[in-house]
Simulated assay, not measured.
Amino acid sequence: MTKEQKKATRKALRQYAEGPVRAAWAEVIEEVLRYYEAAEPLCADLLRLRYLEGKPEEKVVPALYICRSTYYRKELEVLSTVAVEAARRGLL
C-alpha cells in the first residue's frame, strides 16, 4: 500500500458518513468489521476505536493493551483491507 493510498483510505474512513457515497462506505466498513470480528478481533477494535469513534492513537494503544509497533502493523492491515474492499466496490 503506497503512502497516497493509505492517506486516501484514512481520509475516506474519517469522512465516510458524509456525502453521496455514505451508504456504500457504510457497507464497506460493516463488511470489514464482520470479517475482522471473526478473524482478528484486535483489528476490529482498532478500526472501531480509531476511525469510527475518532480516538487518537495515544488513547487507542493503551485501550487495546498493545505496543506501538503492533498498533502500526495492525493499522496498516486494517487500512489495506478497507482499501481493497473499497476498491472492489469502485470507491477508491
Rank of each mutant, 00 (worst) to 15 (best):
C43Q: 09
G90Y: 07
R14D: 09
E27Y: 08
E58Q: 14
R48T: 10
A12T: 08
R48W: 15
L49C: 06
E31L: 11
T70C: 03
K11V: 05
A39E: 14
R10A: 05
R68C: 06
L46D: 02
Q5V: 05
T81D: 08
L33Q: 13
Y71N: 04
L92W: 12
V32H: 00
E75L: 07
A39K: 10
V21Q: 15
K59H: 10
A8D: 14
L13N: 01
E85V: 12
R88A: 13
P41S: 10
S69M: 10
R14H: 08
C67G: 15
A26D: 14
G19V: 04
C67F: 15
L47D: 02
E85Q: 06
R48E: 08
A17I: 11
S80T: 14
Y51P: 00
A24E: 09
A86Y: 04
R10V: 08
R48Q: 10
K11C: 03
Y71H: 03
P56D: 11
L92I: 13
R22G: 08
A12V: 07
Q5K: 08
R34H: 10
R22L: 09
A23P: 05
L49G: 04
L91W: 09
L42A: 09
L92E: 10
R10P: 00
R50W: 03
C43G: 04
M1L: 08
R22D: 11
R22H: 13
T9V: 05
A24C: 04
V21W: 13
D45W: 09
T9W: 00
E53K: 12
T9E: 01
P62M: 05
L76D: 13
Y35K: 05
E57Q: 15
E30N: 12
L33P: 01
L49N: 07
Q5H: 08
L33N: 06
E30H: 07
E53C: 09
Y72K: 15
V84P: 00
E18D: 14
V32P: 00
P56A: 12
I29E: 01
K3I: 13
E75T: 07
A17C: 06
R68E: 09
Y36F: 15
Q15P: 04
V60I: 13
E18L: 14
A38S: 14
A39M: 10
